[in-house]
Amino acid sequence: MSRTSKDLSIESVWRGGVSPFAVSWRKLMLWLFIITDGLLFAGLLAGYGFVRLASPQWPNRAEIFHLDFIALMTFILITSSATMATAVGAARQGRVQTAFRFVLLTILGGLGFLSCQAYEWSKLISEGARLSSNPWGVPLFSAAFFIITGFHGSHVLTGVIVLSVVAWRALRQRVSPEGVELAGLYWHFVDLVWVFIFTLFYLI
């Protein structure tokens, strides 16, 4: 059977030596990590949805959280994503100093977000919220809160550490544009997850 040029083209793509996704292997590996990590949060949020549906009552979020404060946290994270995107753009253009400054701003945003989260956690803990109990009558409420925001917070902390390494390397002129881009990709993922947590946990 004779093979068409399309068959040969597909075969040559998947035989190796070329990139079917037209991205570097490092970027592809990070995308695969993001997909699997995204599924971790999807599982947590789906579990939270199950608990919400199965519970006859659920605490009123407006009585427990200050939504203005949560909005401030969201503002900080969205702004840090914009500064990170600008850093990536600057690094691509070879403007390492500009990239360094915007990475620093992103780190400040991350630290600001973590400070807000630490304040929110300590406030709820001081009100009696624990992983297995809370004063609002539905134990799974605080369990869901601490697990979901805790996992997300650990990702933010990891992002701050990664960005600090990138900033240090940029300061020494040893960072590659792709290095900044990969760090940025992870940081935007952290922001993306917060969009879902903010809506599903705090608003709905």
Binding site: I35, L39, A42, L45, A46, G49, F50, R52, L53, A54
Partner: peptide
């Protein structure tokens, strides 16, 4: 991410309502 998350939720959502 999105389709798998959607399938995951909509597969267990009826069980949540049954428990309720």
């Amino acid at each position: 991410i999105l389709a798998t998350a959607g399938i995951l939720f909509f597969l267990i959502a009826p069980d949540g309502l049954r428990v309720l």
